[in-house]
């Protein structure tokens, strides 16, 4: 029963990752990448590793997003 839920989340993570690759607007790509790491955190939680899930949520959702946003502000937002 659990295996169905876990495979659903793996599928969602895959779709979000492909979306982050395809988007031309880099801001949307950053939002999609934020979502990938949020779902990865849920997957670690399913695998009974709460400490890794905590670290993944803090680094992926907060730190990486902030660093990417600073990088986009220094360069340009739209890929052609």
């Amino acid at each position: 029963m659990m295996i169905i839920v876990v495979s659903l989340f793996v599928l969602l993570m895959l779709v979000a990752a492909v979306a982050a690759l395809i988007f031309k607007d880099l801001m949307s790509a950053v939002i999609a990448a934020c979502m990938v790491s949020l779902i990865a955190s849920i997957l670690f939680y399913f695998l009974q590793a709460p400490d890794v899930a905590m670290a993944e949520a803090s680094i992926g959702a907060a730190l990486i997003t902030a660093v990417f946003i600073v990088a986009i502000r220094r360069t340009e937002r739209f890929e052609e």
Binding site: C34, L38, A57, A61, A62, A66, I69
Partner: peptide, 15 residues
């Protein structure tokens, strides 16, 4: 999780 996602969303909104 709720605290850190809140911080990330506020950063996106500021940008």
């Amino acid at each position: 999780y709720s605290l850190l996602a809140f911080v990330g969303l506020v950063a996106i909104a500021r940008f």
